[in-house]
Design a protein around this nucleic acid. Structure first.
Lengths: 347, 347
DNA sequence: ATGAAAGCGCTAACAA
DNA sequence: TTGTTAGCGCTTTCAT
């Protein structure tokens, strides 16, 4: 199938015009859907184009007409994660209003894949990049910027690079979660987190530490990380529940992890299920009665779009770092003990 | 902010080269990150570019280098809906492997918005279109095809147009749901559906009718449609529950609707909560124990990508219509009465 | 309703 | 390491 594309030495408008026996411009008019083409010529040209398998060269068309490509690229983990798809949606909303397109690409949290995509996107088509980066150092992005492509870092700040960024106040998030549980009287508080190299992970942890280090000694034993998907989160949760003295509360580091924790709890089905707090606000948290700590993802998208576009217009403006607050929404997954507190019942 | 972009009369490479006191090509090399540029020149050029606010014209660059833009466009309702984001992800996977980009755009289920997007995408940048169409007639898409842009219709078939399509066997879905409930002894079966004009809605309904029309007379009174979002779905559900003789089972026409139904049930919290079946398979259905009827969304994406790309290579191949099966996954939301059947407990 | 010529802004060869 | 010269494939005038 790829062969099919490569064998064909790219039919041009000139060839179509030739075959149809008309001028270049006439063929252009016909294919472009302009007016002032007789029905007869139209038919001829369309037939010729079809026979030759003609396809307009977008670059040439754009160039000649003076239109700008104006598309911005979004690179994120994967769009199956509602956090990323919500982000994509809000960036798209903004970007399209400005008459630009949004190209999406998935890094699957791989730094190499990210680098490949950035090269591909930035070096040619894309005017600006919004990226949830899987890299731990961003010095290389300086080249991208030097080539005139602004980069906005989202959810995770840029390291060793001067660039716009939009992130949540993750320390605040960690603090809120920990404090809420502490207030409820929990002392055995577990945290199941994403990859340990993630700045979001670290900051959330720091926030929890700020609250818990003085209050309870055990929590660091109840720390689990590297739970980037549902399966690994379930495994970590299983471990925790199997402990001689299992946690009475679990904080799930993001929505994927939360899903894993809940699946495991629902499968295990202990009657004394631990309290649960999820970081992120997936759409199902409300029905499931899960207490969450989250920021406004839409706002992130809007800020990112705004920063990307504004830098397109003014390259000299100083770098901006937007930090958005997180807030806690209490629900029944952390309701007081004695009341109906189990988030789920067993199968 | 838009002004910022329009005021600037588009700086060209030539101007940058001028200002840096080098040749056009040297400037090109510097900005392009090629080798064979002295550090000194590089600095000069970068400074000039920066001062002028230069940004490379992607179209010109692409054209000159002979590279193809090769991006395909996906138009769907909105990517906040997990059905669409899963679709986007699987199309992106395939498309990127072929060295192409995926551009996404949201119609918000508006035919006019869709038309605008199609014009925008198809007439210039995009090589092929994958669309979940909000239109009820697709004759106009013939122009798009005539201009050499293949269109693949996904989830909803093309009307009055010869085009590739990938859809689910929605009648089968309706039948499966209805039969399952009938087998469980339900007679008051409600259906809360999406917009009535949607082919998916109609077909699912037809499937249910095929099973229920002979078996129970009441079900058509328990039919509600036009529930495209969570709020309207909640409203329809509330209506149904308020009926003198409320349904003992509810089929939710898609994942948004399902969420609404569940939210309403959870808020209302009747102890004799109705059985629930959701059409679609959102990631949270398993934890919540919701019986679902769904097809393989990833497969849809893969087929769509395959069809789009293959038609790029062979325009003469006959149109293909892929119909994918749906299957039912029984969970506790339709567990037999007497056992622990409530899908949720009240707040 | 159709055609001829002149570029769009950039990069690939080639030369220096 | 840098500069010169041709175009890339298409759309725009401006004719006719």
């Amino acid at each position: 199938m790829q062969d099919a594309r490569e064998q064909v030495p790219r039919v041009t408008l000139a060839q179509v015009a030739d075959r149809a026996g008309v001028s270049l411009k006439t063929a252009s008019r016909a294919l472009g859907g302009e007016q002032y083409v007789s029905h007869e010529t139209l038919t001829k040209v369309l037939a010729a184009a079809n026979a030759l398998g003609y396809r307009r060269n977008a670059a040439a068309s754009l160039l000649a007409s003076g239109h700008l490509v104006e598309s911005i690229g979004l690179i994120a983990g994967d769009f199956t994660n509602p956090f990323y798809s919500a982000l994509a949606q809000s960036v798209e909303d903004d970007i399209r209003q400005q008459g630009m397109h949004l190209s999406v690409a998935t890094s699957w949290e791989s730094a190499e894949q990210e680098r490949r995509i950035v090269d591909d996107l930035a070096s040619r088509q894309t005017k600006a990049l919004v990226v949830v980066s899987a890299m731990s150092d961003h010095a290389d992005y300086a080249q991208v910027q030097a080539r005139g492509v602004p980069v906005v870092f989202v959810d995770r700040p840029a390291v060793n690079l001067d660039a716009d960024s939009v992130v949540f106040d993750n320390r605040m998030g960690g603090r809120l979660a920990a404090q809420h549980l502490l207030d409820l009287g929990h002392t055995r508080i577990a945290f199941v987190g994403d990859y340990a190299w993630l700045p979001t992970y670290r900051e959330r942890l720091e926030g929890m530490a700020a609250v818990l280090d003085g209050a309870t000694s055990s929590w660091r034993e109840l720390l689990r990380d590297d739970a980037h998907d549902v399966a690994s989160s379930r495994a970590r949760t299983r471990e925790l529940l199997a402990l001689p003295d299992p946690p009475t509360a679990i904080v799930a580091g993001n929505n994927r992890i939360l899903l894993g924790v809940l699946e495991e709890l629902s499968a295990t089905g202990p009657d004394d299920a631990p309290a649960v707090i999820g970081i992120d606000e997936p759409e199902w948290a409300r029905v499931m009665g899960i207490t969450t700590v989250a920021g406004d993802v839409e706002a992130v998208g809007h800020h990112a779009a705004r920063l990307a576009v504004s830098r397109l217009g003014d390259r000299t403006r100083p770098v901006e770092h937007v930090v958005l607050p997180m807030r806690l929404t209490p629900r029944r997954s952390t309701a007081r003990h004695g009341s109906d507190s189990a988030p789920l019942r067993a199968e």
